[in-house]
Amino acid sequence: MSGHNENTSVDKHEHVPSYGKNVMIWLALVALTALTVTVASVNLGNYTFFVAMLIASIKAMLVINIFMHIKYDDILMKSILIACGLVFTVIIIMYSFDLFNTYTG
């Protein structure tokens, strides 16, 4: 995840990805999968959901940044990804207010 900061220019074709780095990311993804399966067998009560989603989000970030290459893309590509994430987050948060009022209020 380091040493590629020089590739922030507009031309994405300057960054030629390497085999080794992608294999490392894959290993990290496999390790996180093992972790989430292990954690699932431990009773964390109400935190189970959040821990599972946290690990899934870390895995998603690795896939989006490295495999999907967004880390090396320009700000336009990044900003529309962020916009999409924000829309989804806002919907989830607003819906959560309604849900928790209905079922726990």
Partner: peptide, 26 residues
């Protein structure tokens, strides 16, 4: 090929969330 790859990674991404939500949270 790069776009095909993007599509394939999205499929992977969705499964990354489907797996814990359906299989692990019990």
């Amino acid at each position: 090929l790069e776009n095909a790859g993007l599509y394939w990674h999205l499929v992977d991404l969705i499964w990354i969330f489907l797996f814990p939500l359906f299989y692990l949270l019990h």
